[in-house]
Simulated assay, not measured.
Amino acid sequence: MNEGLKVFLAVADERSFTRAASKLHMTQPAVSQHIRSLELDLGAHLIERNNRMIRLTRAGEIVDRHARQIVQTEEQMRRLVHDLASTIFGALHIGASYSIGEYILPVMLADFSKKHPGVDPHIEIGNTHSIASMVASRTLDVGLVEGSYSPNEVETEVLGADELILVARNGHPLVRDSFVTIAEAEKECWIVREEGSGTREFSDRFLEDHHISPERTMTFSSTQAIKEAVRSGLGISVLSALTLQMELELGVLQQIRLEGLPITRQLFIVTQPSAFQPKVVSAFSDFAKEHFSDLTQTRTPVHRTSIDET
């Protein structure tokens, strides 16, 4: 069904007949034929080629918008019909925030795929707000995020818990048994995530609640980049303990004891509000909650600080 629309969307996404053909495992002439047939059927020119560049006509933009809705509806219909046969099967569009997507999702997805080989997962990594927005717009079936998002637009359920800790490179002067003062912490360069990140949301709230005003900050859009920056001595950072397991075990990054840290935060699974949730989404949601429960029980503990220790 709607094969021509799927081919059209591939060309629109790739802005290239050649790349679209490769993506769809088709020949370029076959892609061109699908587009011509769709244009004849609709009685409108959909795609223009100028100087080897491809752009959509006004009619093409209209088709693009509605074709995505049609294809998504068809995919959901197919999954619901397959559900009647108790089969976990079909495409599953998963989104994850960077911390979860880069450090937890790959292992979890490998285990899920072994259990349900008929599922075809498609992954999108972004910050918390972009992932939740794509779930709300039905671009994604499910999202795994940290941080808050309006429950009126999507359905959210607690996935598990995580802790945010303050870390520095091995041998940093602030890594010690005693607590550091706010004045000492403020003199350091704080390396932070970009706006819209769940980790950034929590770190900003911590700084505000504890009246900490760093003399200098540096922004990165990747947890891995922040870890490398901290390891290189560029500054200190508040990061997820789930993303720091290897560095803490090896001792290349170490925890700084500062009042108010670690921060415990909840992680969420975000799904579309629907009374007819496809079985593949429900199966993945249940699997994710079980995985995070096991992960919380087995992860390396961080040093929990208390002002009573001073």
Rank of each mutant, 00 (worst) to 15 (best):
E146R: 14
T139A: 12
H129T: 13
M108Q: 08
P121T: 00
K115M: 09
A168E: 08
G126D: 02
A132R: 00
D120G: 13
L140N: 02
E153V: 12
D141C: 09
S113H: 04
E124M: 08
E146A: 15
A161N: 06
S148F: 10
I123W: 04
E157L: 02
I125C: 07
T156F: 07
H122D: 04
E146K: 15
L159I: 10
S130P: 11
F112I: 05
S130H: 12
V135F: 14
S150E: 14
E153G: 11
V154C: 12
T139C: 12
A161L: 13
G126Y: 03
A168W: 06
Y149T: 09
S113C: 01
N127I: 03
G126I: 04
A168T: 02
N127P: 01
G147N: 08
S150L: 13
A110Y: 06
D111Y: 07
L164R: 08
P117Y: 05
N127R: 00
P117R: 02
P151I: 10
L140C: 07
H129R: 11
V107Q: 12
E153I: 11
M134N: 05
D111A: 14
E155F: 04
A136E: 01
S130V: 15
V158E: 15
G143Y: 07
A110S: 10
A161I: 07
V107S: 14
S113G: 05
E153S: 11
A136P: 09
G118P: 10
